[in-house]
Design a protein around this nucleic acid. Structure first.
Lengths: 196, 196
DNA sequence: TTCCTTTCTTAATCTAGATTAATGAAAACC
DNA sequence: GGTTTTCATTAATCTAGATTAAGAAAGGAA
């Protein structure tokens, strides 16, 4: 059962917080526990909350017409995750967000967040900053997806998230880089041949 | 030569502004003029500014190893555009941002923007909100790219941006939806056949 | 230990979309 | 107003990655 220290640390990497501000921040959240395979959000529901992962790992994914899952994001410890389209526009989520491992998270709903911004403008700054950063990340991801082939996307993923390679089943990584598990298997065996 | 009214209108769709606040906002910007084919940003440069388009249209694109261009975003009147990765981390831009038409824009550099946030927290709110929205848009785009086929991506683009279909050369749209101009041509002829 | 489910691998075949090439039509430029 | 780039189209061929199928490994639960 990890405490909320990771959240305070994370926020304070971007903006300084007094002790009372820290308290005010924490009361905006509630704790959430998600055993492996349980859902934080199911597509069709309206997403009301943003999650900050303390332990474990969540993933967000969309399902296409053929029923194939496409991973959008992994959220291990210290990451934020939500369905921005659903929460912003109050629309049914296209995304599912599911625990890949037993997960502990801090959850904050939108109204709480807006009250928080009203009380502590510094936290509006924090969220402005992390939203800019995740915007930048999302752009990088899109560029990579359209302008790099599958093998190089895999190589890049390995460099960028070495700990996730250890931690996650290959099929989850395949779904993230946008190939079938069979093709990822082929890529890996080619890489092994090439190296030895 | 359009004035800055479009900017004030746009901001005030999200947050209210007093008259003095409006003035303070405007002085953070300078005017920029980009004849067709001129660049607001070239890859390799460090991006220092965000642009708000008053008239005309910009596009951002990345170039892959084979030299193929991949359009990330179009910015017609009322849209914001920048290279978030470059401006945030002060790194050489991966993106090019070029005028597709003769373009008038308002430009603001990062330091100006930070001073603006310090003076007017309400504008930090505004940028928090539009960054959230563009984050949501970027996510939608990524999901679409990986889970929908080219024909349906084109159909969706036509619905979403009917005015751009009129305005832009097909090759720019092809590059945005992630196909070659030849294949888009094929898609279009199939759609025509199907309809008649 | 054994059974059951999930995951990974290999290989054959298939397909959406790329590439190449050639032609005609617009625009843009002088 | 001609000429030179740029753009759109069609068609033949090619390829990265999907699909299908089937076996091997590797957990988990009991």
């Amino acid at each position: 059962m990890p405490g909320p220290e990771l959240l305070l640390q994370t926020v304070q990497k971007s903006v300084p917080l007094e002790s009372e501000e820290q308290q005010r921040l924490l009361v905006a959240f509630q704790k959430g526990t998600f055993p492996r395979k349980e859902f934080f959000l199911r597509s069709g529901e309206v997403c009301k909350q943003v999650a900050f992962v303390l332990q474990g790992c969540l993933r967000s994914y969309a399902v296409d017409e053929e029923g194939t899952e496409h991973n959008l994001q992994f959220a291990p410890e210290g990451w934020w995750i939500t369905d921005m389209n659903s929460i912003l526009y109050n629309q049914p989520a296209q995304l599912n967000i599911e625990a890949i491992e037993d997960t502990q998270a801090l959850l904050m709903n939108r109204e709480q967040q807006e009250l928080l911004f009203r009380d502590l403008p510094i936290l509006e700054r924090f969220f402005r900053i992390i939203t800019e950063k995740s915007m930048a990340g999302s752009h990088k991801r899109l560029i990579e997806q359209v302008s790099v082939n599958a093998k190089d996307r895999y190589i890049h993923f390995c460099k960028l998230y070495p700990e996730l390679i250890q931690r996650l089943p290959q099929k989850q990584i395949a779904s993230y880089i946008g190939v079938t598990p069979e093709f990822l298997s082929k890529i890996k065996s080619e890489l092994l041949k090439g190296k030895s």
